[in-house]
Design a protein around this nucleic acid. Sequence first.
DNA 1: CTGAAAGCGCTTACAG
DNA 2: CTGAAAGCGCTTACAG
Lengths: 336, 336
Amino acid sequence: MTTRPTIKEVSKIAGVSFKTVSRVLNNEKHVSEETRRRVEEVVAQLNFRPSHAARILAGRRSFQVALLYDNPSPYYVFHIQAGAMERCGELGYRLLMQPVDTTARHLVQDVLALVDEAHLDGLILSPPLTEMPELIDALDKRKLPYVRIAPGLRKNHGLATAMDDVAAAREITRHLIDLGHRAIAFVSGPESHVSSKDRMAGYRQELEAHGIAFDPSLVIAGDYSFASGGAAAKALFVRTPRPTAIFAGNDDMAAGALAAAHEADIAVPEALSIAGFDDSDLARAVWPPLTTIRQPVRQLAYAAADLMLSGKAVVQQLTLEHELKVRATTGPAPTP
Amino acid sequence: MTTRPTIKEVSKIAGVSFKTVSRVLNNEKHVSEETRRRVEEVVAQLNFRPSHAARILAGRRSFQVALLYDNPSPYYVFHIQAGAMERCGELGYRLLMQPVDTTARHLVQDVLALVDEAHLDGLILSPPLTEMPELIDALDKRKLPYVRIAPGLRKNHGLATAMDDVAAAREITRHLIDLGHRAIAFVSGPESHVSSKDRMAGYRQELEAHGIAFDPSLVIAGDYSFASGGAAAKALFVRTPRPTAIFAGNDDMAAGALAAAHEADIAVPEALSIAGFDDSDLARAVWPPLTTIRQPVRQLAYAAADLMLSGKAVVQQLTLEHELKVRATTGPAPTP
DNA sequence: CTGAAAGCGCTTACAG
DNA sequence: CTGAAAGCGCTTACAG
């Protein structure tokens, strides 16, 4: 393997001290136009790139942050990565993408170890890492800059970007009520996810705002998986009267419910309306396409990186807009 | 921000030279059991982790490799990352996940720049980067270790892991022929993807092996997207007689065709069989669940990292098994 | 505007 | 089995 060129070789060829090359690389003032040009020429000619390791070691900052996640959804992870990567790149930071195991016993220690090993300047946390009090406390204590995407807990603590799950759930519930539905079932996500609790709270609030009594027997516990959505739907199908609408806490479960409806030969949306949450890739791939809430996943991550790194943030917490996407799985309630 | 402990602080507390601490950290021989224990105690107590930057700078190797990708599929990227990450971790390497822009004019230069900046010990390439001759040539010239996942071109060149697209496409075509189908349409992926060409070649070979003439008008060009699968299906639906089966080059396009069939009120699989390729998340989320080929994406990446880093590889190219997943979108050809 | 010295936190190569 | 010296490729702080 050929060895990389170094700053000294560049300086030798350009006929200046290596300190001057360093100045050019860092866009510092006090370099004559001609010297700058000459150095830049040599840099381009050798395709020279300074060693990150050397810069990190010598400098006060690493210009390196990590995105921590532990999420089973490829869709979610992909877009979180893309959004964070984009903003970090624009601001001159490198982004390390770090899957972590939130069930590990030494999670906090592992994260702090990573911070030390990589000399991280900051951390971007995504759910469910945003909901771990021990982690938050440890980072605060360490005085390490960090930002949370969708903080379930302590929503007004530190830097964070989020959408309003409660309001979004109310909107989609209202959409169903406006279509004439009264017996609306809710398929919840895992107990431990605050997002799931928030969505259920929104569902319940909106029902009650319309004078519809909340019926706990219409709430089925799922776990955000396709299979759990199908199982929940099947449990609902044997009830008489059958609910006329199902609001699932995410798109995977909604797709599971939709498949169960197809299997049971229940027409969607004519006999049953189904709504999801997220607007993931799935939402447009199933048939009929899902009515759902568009969650601005990519933007949430982009804004999170910006909040932490741009130095121009005027707020600590930022709430981004969601959007109700009415597609084809919801329709007027069937007349009894 | 609290500053990290260093090897010198550890050595001071443990009462040894910092060189001895270095020996313990690197599991070198010639350290007395007692000294080792004492050092390890201090390391644990301080939660000390050595600086990657310092190690990279001082050592001959960085124990750092990068995974390069430019793929629009969250499913694919997620599993490639997971597989590569797992094997790298097991072998003591760090994995940098690097999205790259394959349409950039200076792609090769950018990749080599990354190699220099991060002192990379090697590169894992995924499609479509595996199919760029200039990149391959540049890496060979640089004598930089690399491995390709699913090399479309020069399949017997260098380290690579792959599945047999041609054989898999033959299998799924045979499955349809065995069900009595004769008018089988094929929806291709983008021209530029070798995987797409291979799948089409398999389709054609299997038809001909069964004495079924290849009919170019039954081949519709898609681009691996859901929308293109729907458009292709609609174009096929207006033909008389209508083909009784559609083999789409990937699951997204198969899902698009399936949605189009639902919309046109064509029963699947009673009136039309549809098969996909990949066994992505989509395959089980649509209804009916898709018959498809399971592509061992995660294992391909795992094996690729192993091939490059374990030092125990006995072959240069490794072909992993695919699997025909017969689910519910394929059935007996309708009797005319 | 430019440069020589010191140092970042480790590993390597050499001694003892 | 253990240690002191040199050096990796840069930035920082100080001079001129």
